[in-house]
Amino acid sequence: MAFLKVENITIRFGGLTAVDSVSFHVDQGEIVSLVGPNGAGKTTVFNMLTGVYQVTEGDMEFMGQKLLDKTPQEIVKLDISRTFQNLRLFPKLRVVENVLVGMHIHTHYNFFQGLFHTPAYRRQEAENIAKAVEILDSIGMGKHINDYAGSLPYGDQRKVEIARAMATDAKLLLLDEPAAGMNPAESETLLQFIRHLKSIGYTVLLIEHDMNVVMNVSDRIYVLDHGKLIAEGLPDEIANNQAVIDAYLGGEREKHAED
């Protein structure tokens, strides 16, 4: 049984078919990349997986559970978590508080226990803070736990987003262009970190334009163009696939190439 199985998902916005009958699967412990030119529908796939958009047709399954008709809140409880293409941190909260928000669904005390700071609250908070610091330290953000998320440089904000996604205790992380806005040294560190995620048991579905990251970290790659899957395979196969080269460098029509 596949870990994540997506079958023929389609979404239409009015007359526009943004994603057209796309199927793919991710096995446990894999790093799978979803690439394609801008506007190909990659982020839309993420939005369907996480319940932001309702799928028009098709089926999605994660660890034997149907993902269709589930709210984002239910999906995150099934252990899928994501980051965003254009940063969506909580800028006025501290870095450590951002990660604590990520632990929301695993914070087991109610409003009144929080109001009166009962022993249950104290225990849970202490445990969560330690865990949040541990996650941030593992991603090299330990020094910044007290900083306000909005005041961090772009690259660091991306790391906090990944830390926040990890804090949900997800098994599958959907990373939407984590290397965007990073310099080569930073994206090299990110590459190492994504490998580290795999080694500690995470499964990663990655959208990325930085081909250095994609080619070096992916176990398998899927290529989307105009909402359709045009290729899939190992990094080497994709790099030499004519359809992919056409999509990126433009066959008949000039398109934007990212790398």
Binding site: V52, P72, Q73, S81, R88, F90, G102, H104, T168
Partner: peptide, 9 residues
């Protein structure tokens, strides 16, 4: 960020 909050469950 309401959407991000939703995504955190």
């Amino acid at each position: 960020d309401e959407l991000a909050a939703t995504m955190m469950g």
